[in-house]
Amino acid sequence: MTGPGFAHLLRLGDDTGLYEHADGPLPRREHGYCLDDVARGLVVLCREPEPSADLVVLVERYLAFTAHAQADDGRFHNRLGTDRAWRDEPGSGDWWGRALWGLGTAAARCPVPWIRTAALARFERGAHHRPPSVRSMAFAALGAAEVLAGDPGHRLAAELLGDVSSYVGGPGDVPGWPWPERRLFYANAVLPEALIAAGHLLGDPGIRDDGLRLLGWLLTVESAGDHLSPTPTGGRHPGAPRPAFDQQPIEVAALADACARAHEVTDEPRWLTGVHRAVAWFGGDNDLGVPMRDAETGGGYDGLTRDGPNLNQGAESTLALISTLQHGRALAGSAG
């Protein structure tokens, strides 16, 4: 499978932001924009080691959207209509966490100095919140990890990252179910990834090892033989039958993110398995043996149903594809 392409991401956007939904490869403009997706876009674009001029323009656009979404108190709106009016009040749900993830990544990795400065200021405006949702906090922790890796003395980032372990918790003592929740939900691998990042950057091997243990268990649970069989949209409880549908690309991308970080932290080859399985899932090595990407458009399909792919190519699924292929390319480059 080739590396990531950005043609479909360009197709899904305009000079305001990124349309959330698509009908096949065509953006459904009537549904408007979503900060969740724009923030995911900031993450993947700022991971590019040598972004083209077109991609830098997208970073500028996504950063402007994220800044516009942020209220004075650091919380964020999530949904913007095509009339450029917000459809919600500022909050600290998942979109707050993803916004801090995107801003932290831009602040640490973007090659354009003014973008790094502006992104860091917006990160700092929002990093003092502590929402009730564990996933909101875990997404934000990944942004804090980016900031702290570049600036080990950054107090706000260190405090946010230091608080995430109390949200996630460590492995439980239920036989066969060490997961800290009673069931798996969505983007599950972000929880152990946040622990791995916190333990590594804050010098706490216990927290790091908790994250590695949870991730190893999750990789086993979300595999069937040699391919991924991820948690479906309805979640998964102990003893649930498999395969189960609908499967979402975001689950696969989160697992690739976490395994790539685990490999970076430990240099243990076993974590490469997770990345390779995630890349292969999009290529057709999944429960139905069908590709989950459109080779012509570069878009990612919205989900794997029991009847085959959902052929719509929205922003979330396309960014999940791009993110996963970035990890595959990085590992191929290091192996070469």
Rank of each mutant, 00 (worst) to 15 (best):
Arg116Lys: 13
Thr117Leu: 14
Pro111Trp: 14
Asp94Trp: 04
Thr105Trp: 00
Gly104Phe: 09
Trp101Asp: 02
Asp94Gly: 08
Thr117Met: 12
Trp114Ile: 09
Ser92Gly: 13
Asp88Tyr: 04
Pro90Tyr: 06
Arg98Ser: 07
Leu100His: 05
Trp96Ile: 00
Val112Cys: 09
Gly104His: 08
Arg109Met: 10
Leu103Pro: 04
Arg98Glu: 02
Trp101Glu: 06
Arg116Ser: 11
Gly97Asp: 02
Cys110Ser: 15
Val112Thr: 14
Ala107Ser: 13
Ala106Cys: 15
Arg109Glu: 13
Ala108His: 05
Asp88Gln: 07
Gly91Glu: 01
Leu100Thr: 05
Leu100Gln: 08
Gly102Ser: 09
Gly93Thr: 00
Arg109Gly: 02
Pro90Leu: 07
Arg98Ala: 06
Ala107Glu: 08
Ala107Pro: 08
Trp101Pro: 01
Trp96Asp: 00
Asp88Trp: 03
Ile115Asn: 02
Gly97His: 02
Leu100Ile: 09
Ala107Met: 10
Cys110Phe: 06
Gly91Ala: 15
Ile115Gln: 11
Arg116Gly: 06
Arg116Tyr: 13
Ile115Trp: 10
Gly104Ser: 07
Glu89Gln: 14
Trp95Ala: 12
Trp114Lys: 12
Pro113Phe: 09
Arg98Thr: 08
Ser92Thr: 13
Trp95Met: 00
Ala99Met: 05
Ala99Lys: 04
Arg109Ile: 05
Gly91Met: 05
Ser92Lys: 02
Ser92Leu: 06
Trp114His: 15
Cys110Leu: 12
Thr117Glu: 15
Arg98Gln: 13
Pro113Met: 12
Trp101Ile: 01
Thr105Lys: 07
